[in-house]
Simulated scan of single mutants.
Amino acid sequence: MLRYYIPIPKTKKIVLWNILKFKEKKTNSQLKNISLNRKQPEDSINRSFHGIEAIVKEDLVRIEAYLLLLQNLIDNLNKPCNHDISIRFIKNLRIRWSSALNLNCKSSNGLSLASIFQRKKSPTFFQVNNMMFELHMILFIYALKLREKAMVLISTADMVGSTKAYREAAGVFDYLCKIRHPDYSPWVPIEKLPELTSSVCSSLSLLCLAEGQAVTASKAKEKGTSASLLAKLHYGVSQFVDEANASLLSKTSIQVKELSSCFLDYVSTLGALHELKSGKHLAESLESEGQVGEAIGVLRRALARAKKTTQFRDDSWKSIFNKEREEVTTMMKKYERLNKSMMLQRIPLDAELPTLQGDMIVKLIPYLATKRGKELNFEFP
């Protein structure tokens, strides 16, 4: 399967308990815990150990713990009685994040390919005086870590767990599309921080569903599922990818131009790969029913479309795609020999060939926001 680790946004350190105090010593201790818990996601962001299951799980536990405390803090700050304190508190907090989706292309091992030829630019940090900015970015990272968990579980052959993690990641990205937050445009040029946009979050949700369905299709093949059903499952992956692309194009073309070319190439390669797989299985199904002429036509069409996919930012993508293309070519030559020697069937024109049909069976798991904790009593020192 194709792999691409989406780069994680960077942040600057913030220390909550140096800015805000509480009337109760116990509550002050809680706020200090929030700062300590915030440091743990900071550490997770700055380290890159892709593919190590224990580290991914540890990162998720750290982020979940911080989310619980963060949501509780936001709930209390949003109370009418704490309005003035909230404004003063957030003004001094200096929450700063940078984008990772509009940086130079990164390979699957996290190394910048562009930096080989040019000096890598430092990320630009944007400051927004709103706690919802912090919540949005932490949830974004949480979704990326769930997706990373899904990729790790594939390597351990836990396909059921992998699909579930992809579905959970899709649910978090979908939640981010719907979360209500203020207009950030006075502080952040939105195309410079695409992680904040609903179109990008929606696209990532659909991408996770596509990847989850790809795992489902692999599992179905292991179980000996019919070729006709496999064709529909693989084309369903391509349909999810098409919807993800449509989501990116639904807002502004400027936004898409600012996105990492590596990310965009991965999305297009994923869709093309599974369209090719779908064509292969459809041809296999047609041949089993004695329709060798149509099977040959479907394979020729699939190979013609595959030639349009030329961007491979990762050697492993190229290897996987070329292997699939070679299998389709071998199958086509086999069917052509069979048709020439025995079947003698006419090969239909493209317009006469059966179209690819897809089943989009993977559904997201909705993200449930953390429950509200105890009431906090604020005061400034």
Rank of each mutant, 00 (worst) to 15 (best):
A283E: 01
F263M: 07
I63A: 02
P41D: 03
L135H: 09
S48L: 13
R372L: 00
A244W: 03
A244C: 10
F140G: 06
T197A: 04
L364P: 05
L248G: 04
T309S: 07
N76T: 07
M342T: 14
L376Q: 07
L376A: 06
N130H: 07
N28V: 02
S108M: 03
T163N: 12
S162K: 06
P9V: 05
D174Q: 11
S202F: 00
G358P: 03
I141D: 11
A306M: 14
V160E: 15
I95D: 03
K223R: 10
E64R: 09
A283Q: 01
A369P: 08
C81D: 13
I320W: 09
I190F: 05
L338S: 08
L31M: 10
M159P: 00
L113M: 06
Q291V: 08
E324M: 12
S162W: 07
S155V: 09
D315E: 15
S112N: 11
I95A: 01
K257W: 06
K121V: 02
K257T: 11
Y266I: 04
L364C: 11
D84I: 09
F312C: 04
L176I: 12
R38V: 15
L20S: 00
H274Y: 08
Y166H: 09
K318H: 08
S226H: 14
K149N: 13
D174N: 12
A369N: 11
A231T: 10
A272H: 14
F117K: 04
F312P: 04
A54I: 11
N72T: 15
H281N: 15
K149F: 09
K57F: 00
T156W: 13
L111E: 08
K164V: 14
V56N: 15
